[in-house]
Computed example of a mutant assay.
Amino acid sequence: MSHSTCPCGLPAAYDDCCGRYHAGKPAPTAEALMRSRYTAFARGDEAYLLRTWHPRTRPARVGFEHGMRWTGLEIEDTTGGSPIHTEGTVTFRASYTHRGQTGELHERSRFTRVDGAWAYVDGDITSP
């Protein structure tokens, strides 16, 4: 049982936050899926990332960058993506350090439901 704070930025322990989605509970919203996918990147959980990627756009494997450490997530905007929607977008900024350099990924991600569960489709990366 992990009581450490969840990497996604919400004030909850990992097990009570994204850990429950990693363990198999479906994320109720596109934002919850986005946060849990960020946490999966931070923890190197390739199986979860592939499981929550839309089958049409899913890669064969996730290419984790050696030396990449995700350090923070900020959700900027969401459209749709609630429990009653079938599509949604989440715009976010993810901070990282890579080989001693700090950086930021800014993306507008698209999500849709597949067999009732939220799935990541793709995203547009923009410069911060």
Rank of each mutant, 00 (worst) to 15 (best):
residue 82 S to F: 00
residue 120 Y to W: 07
residue 18 C to P: 09
residue 73 L to S: 04
residue 22 H to T: 10
residue 83 P to H: 02
residue 37 R to Q: 12
residue 91 T to I: 07
residue 47 A to P: 00
residue 48 Y to N: 09
residue 22 H to W: 08
residue 99 R to C: 13
residue 28 P to E: 15
residue 110 R to S: 11
residue 24 G to C: 12
residue 117 A to R: 15
residue 55 P to T: 08
residue 95 S to V: 00
residue 21 Y to H: 15
residue 79 T to F: 03
residue 14 Y to N: 06
residue 83 P to L: 03
residue 124 D to M: 12
residue 11 P to H: 09
residue 93 R to Y: 05
residue 93 R to H: 14
residue 118 W to I: 00
residue 45 D to K: 01
residue 54 H to W: 07
residue 24 G to I: 05
residue 40 A to S: 15
residue 63 G to P: 09
residue 24 G to P: 06
residue 34 M to W: 05
residue 105 L to P: 01
residue 95 S to N: 04
residue 68 M to C: 12
residue 37 R to D: 05
residue 118 W to D: 03
residue 114 V to Y: 06
residue 79 T to A: 13
residue 29 T to V: 04
residue 55 P to S: 06
residue 115 D to R: 12
residue 90 V to M: 07
residue 22 H to Y: 15
residue 105 L to C: 02
residue 23 A to Q: 15
residue 41 F to H: 15
residue 53 W to S: 15
residue 108 R to S: 09
residue 9 G to L: 08
residue 47 A to W: 00
residue 6 C to V: 00
residue 118 W to R: 09
residue 24 G to F: 04
residue 14 Y to C: 10
residue 78 T to Y: 05
residue 2 S to C: 03
residue 13 A to S: 14
residue 52 T to R: 00
residue 57 T to S: 12
residue 32 A to K: 03
residue 16 D to S: 15
residue 76 E to W: 10
residue 107 E to C: 13
residue 19 G to L: 14
residue 103 G to T: 07
residue 43 R to G: 04
residue 65 E to I: 11
residue 95 S to I: 00
residue 125 I to S: 10
residue 1 M to Q: 08
residue 24 G to T: 03
residue 50 L to Q: 08
residue 123 G to V: 05
residue 89 T to G: 07
residue 79 T to P: 00
residue 68 M to H: 11
residue 62 V to I: 14
residue 84 I to D: 12
residue 79 T to Y: 01
residue 43 R to L: 15
residue 98 H to C: 10
residue 59 P to N: 09
residue 78 T to A: 08
residue 47 A to G: 09
residue 5 T to I: 09
residue 46 E to K: 06
residue 68 M to A: 12
residue 120 Y to R: 02
residue 82 S to G: 15
residue 30 A to N: 02
residue 2 S to Q: 11
residue 26 P to T: 09
residue 27 A to E: 03
residue 22 H to K: 14
residue 39 T to Q: 05
residue 73 L to N: 02
residue 1 M to C: 10
residue 126 T to G: 13
residue 98 H to V: 03
residue 103 G to W: 06
residue 48 Y to E: 04
residue 2 S to L: 11
residue 73 L to R: 05
residue 64 F to W: 11
residue 103 G to E: 05
residue 94 A to S: 15
residue 37 R to E: 08
residue 1 M to R: 12
residue 122 D to K: 04
residue 121 V to C: 08
residue 66 H to N: 10
residue 45 D to F: 09
residue 64 F to P: 07
residue 63 G to W: 03
residue 112 T to A: 14
residue 2 S to H: 03
residue 26 P to Y: 05
residue 93 R to A: 14
residue 37 R to T: 04
residue 50 L to R: 04
residue 4 S to D: 11
residue 37 R to A: 11
residue 107 E to P: 11
residue 87 E to N: 05
residue 42 A to H: 12
residue 110 R to G: 02
residue 103 G to N: 04
residue 17 C to V: 04
residue 30 A to M: 06
residue 80 G to I: 01
residue 100 G to W: 03
residue 21 Y to A: 02
residue 76 E to C: 14
residue 66 H to T: 13
residue 14 Y to W: 14
residue 21 Y to N: 06
residue 32 A to H: 02
residue 52 T to Q: 02
residue 38 Y to M: 05
residue 11 P to I: 00
residue 102 T to D: 11
residue 88 G to A: 06
residue 36 S to Q: 06
residue 87 E to M: 06
residue 17 C to S: 01
residue 46 E to D: 07
residue 91 T to F: 10
residue 80 G to R: 02
residue 77 D to C: 06
residue 20 R to M: 12
residue 124 D to S: 08
residue 70 W to C: 11
residue 88 G to H: 00
residue 4 S to T: 13
